[in-house]
């Protein structure tokens, strides 16, 4: 028997299943790949850097006087709202990038390796939390520069930031699913925006729901985005934790529980 390089390969134990530890290690390696890619192509970060700056300035100065009387008193309303809107919108990019990435040959190699099936997806989504973090920090910083002083203190602001990042990560599974089943990246963008636009604007993110017609109030109140915005306002402005925080986390967990398995299944079925 010729035993030089190749036969050594069969010495390892052969197992037909992937352990949880391996799944986590594989996902972290894939996240590392995502970070390297971001470092190589920093222009990918334009959206998460410019959008928070422009939107925060724009919406505050357009609506501030009309809604809250002056800019200063509008800031506690708009900053949590714009934060949630910006970060959630950013999570769409996860889906479009996943679609582009999957069309490349390298995904064939990932599929042919004995790694956890979920790792290429989980890794990509994990790496994108960096994008959400950048968007979050920039939005709060812009607010601070414009005079926003959250009453809840730095600790609660940090928890609020973490909450938004976790929820954005959960929601990105929805767009990852579109990314896996869609034919092109631009169609992912299209579907996602049709869903996101009503969801983020028909909420309490920019204005209080009180002035809206009844039927719209009903929708705004059940809209999960409203719960997330309220949870962030409670944390940042009052330092309190309420039902909305629990609702947001529950919602996030439900989304992951539904979309992570179907996304992985679609990913495995797709050729």
């Amino acid at each position: 028997m010729k035993t030089t390089t190749m036969t050594q390969g069969t010495k390892r134990q052969l197992r037909n299943s992937t352990s949880l530890g391996q799944t986590i290690r594989n996902s972290l390696t894939m996240a590392y790949r995502g970070l390297l890619k971001i470092r190589r192509t920093p222009e990918q970060l334009f959206d998460v850097t410019l959008q928070p700056i422009i939107f925060t300035l724009m919406f505050t100065y357009i609506f501030g006087g009309a809604i809250s009387g002056d800019i200063q008193s509008y800031l506690p309303v708009i900053i949590p709202g714009i934060l949630v809107q910006t970060v959630i919108t950013t999570s769409v990019v996860t889906g479009t990038q996943l679609r582009e990435d999957m069309d490349k040959g390298v995904f064939d190699r990932f599929k042919s390796l004995p790694i956890a099936r979920i790792a290429p997806l989980a890794g990509a989504l994990l790496a994108d939390t960096v994008r959400y973090t950048i968007a979050t920090v920039l939005t709060f910083s812009m607010g601070f520069l414009m005079g926003y002083r959250p009453e809840g203190g730095l600790g609660h602001v940090a928890i609020a930031a973490l909450l938004v990042i976790v929820c954005a990560w959960a929601i990105s599974w929805i767009f990852a699913f579109f990314g896996v089943i869609a034919r092109t990246a631009s169609s992912v963008q299209g579907i996602s925006m049709i869903i996101l636009f009503p969801l983020t604007f028909l909420s309490n993110a920019f204005v209080s729901a009180d002035t809206m017609p009844n039927w719209l109030q009903w929708f705004v109140k059940i809209n999960p985005i409203s719960h997330l915005v309220t949870a962030v306002r409670d944390l940042a402005n009052n330092g309190t934790v309420g039902w909305d925080l629990i609702a947001s986390l529950l919602g996030a967990a439900v989304i992951v529980a539904i979309f992570a398995p179907i996304t992985v299944r679609a990913y495995m079925r797709r050729t």
Binding site: G9, T10, R12, L14, R15, R33, K37, K104, G105, V106, F107, D108, R109, S112, L113, P114
Partner: peptide, 14 residues
């Protein structure tokens, strides 16, 4: 998958 290596027609690298 533990027994095979695959090299595609188009390069399967990043």
């Amino acid at each position: 998958r533990q027994l095979i290596g695959v090299t595609g027609q188009y390069a399967s690298v990043d």
